[in-house]
Each structure stands twice: as C-alpha cells, then as structure tokens.
Amino acid sequence: MNNSQLKNALLRLGDDALILGQRLAEWCGHAPALEEDIALTNISLDLIGQTQSYLSLAGSLFEEGIKSDDELAFLRSGREFQNLLLVEQPNGDFGDTIVRQFLFDAFALLRAEHIAQQSFNPEAAGIAAKAVKEIRYHFDHSSKWMVRLGDGTPESHSRVQKSLNDLWKFTGEMFISDEIDRSGLESGLLPNLEELKKEWDVKIDDILSKATLVRPEDGFMQTGGRKGIHTEAFGFMLAEMQILPRTHPGASW
C-alpha cells in the first residue's frame, strides 16, 4: 500500500463517519423524544470524533503539504468525498434513519475491529480501537430500535420494512473492492470484504429475524460514492455543512 492509497483509505474511513455524523446532527432538536434526540446527537459526536482522527491522519499524507481535518471536511468539493452512498441518504423518517444506521453500524463495527488489530498502521489501529467501543454501542442502539419498530405495531412494522427495502440498494457498495481496498488487504490495513460480508450477513439476519422483518433480495446496487459520484441530496447537505467556514474563512469562537 503506497502513500496515496493509504491516504485514500483513511479519507474513506473519515468521510463515512463525517457524513453520517452530519446527517445525524440534523436530528438535533427534532427527534421523536428528548432522550432519543440526545442519543442520536451523541452518536453523531462519536462519529465526528472518529472523523477528526482519521482525517488528521489522512491530512498528514498529502504530498503538497499537511492538510488539517477542518480543511478536509469543509473545503473539499463534493467530488472529492469518498463516503458510501448509504451514509449520505437523507434522514427521512425515524425508521429510515434507524435502518441506515443499523446497516452501516454492522459494517463499520466489523471494519473497525479489523483495523484495530492490524499492525501495518499503528495510528489507524489506535483510532479504530477507540471507535470499536463507540460503534458497538451504536450497533446495539440501532439493533434494538430495529426490533422495537419491526416487532412493534403494524404501522411501525410496515414503515420500517419499507425503509429497509428502500435503503437496501445502497448496501452492495460496502463490499465492492477496488484498487485501494485490494492494496489495503495486501498490507493488512483493511479487511477482506468478501469475508466481512459473510459476518455482516449473520449480524443483519439475526436482528432482522428478531425484528420479524424480511431481508430484501439483492437486486441492482447503487454505487459511486467511493469514486466521488454522489446522490442528489449530497450536494445540499454539503452546502449546509460547509457554508460557515467557506463564508468566513478561519472563523473561530
């Protein structure tokens, strides 16, 4: 894995966390209950903490000079973000948010567990080791909500099943390997995505069966996030996220 591949692998880790963290932050003040409002924003803050670590590390690998985590988060354009399409999907209703979180948490947990154990890049291992504890709680939180909603009332069941059906087309992208994933696998930094998929399936199937939900068929899978090709809602989200540092460069409080 060369420097540029490592940099991109770290940017992907940071971008997944940043974009999902930003989406969850949009719930602040809007969640269905005060307790859940705090839960979602806590998760958001965990993710943004992970972002800071991964992007700072990635920022140290730019040939043209060190870039800060803030520069990378707030001054890149949409095409430069390499997050999964899944995490940029709009919040929708609470069920949509929970399904998005659940599908991602299971993946992120397995990925972080691998990175925490590898020795190719000890700094990334340190970040992942801290993240594993956080993501374990996120996965627990989203899993329990999947069961409550899926095995809840007829309305909650049908709505969360629809959320699952709608978001399923964004799950395939998590397991596609490109040159960066392959070099990451060779060096040991990144997990084998084919193997990881099997473990993900077990986690997902276990909770879906407890939630009495039907796992959708794998059909057409939407991809592009890893190449910087994003879905329509992404640009609007990015504009809102970046407006302050772009309007007032160097602003502080």
Partner: peptide, 20 residues
C-alpha cells in the same frame, strides 16, 4: 428521571442523557 418504553431502553437512555 427520563421516559423509556422498557427497562432496556431506560438504561440506554440513562447512559445517553446522564453519563455523557
């Protein structure tokens, strides 16, 4: 105090609201 649908959720909510 806080609101929660069941004991498990109460522990989770307590963690999120009171041990941040």
């Amino acid at each position: 105090s806080l609101h929660a649908a069941d004991a498990e959720m109460a522990i989770g909510n307590a963690r999120d609201v009171y041990t941040r």
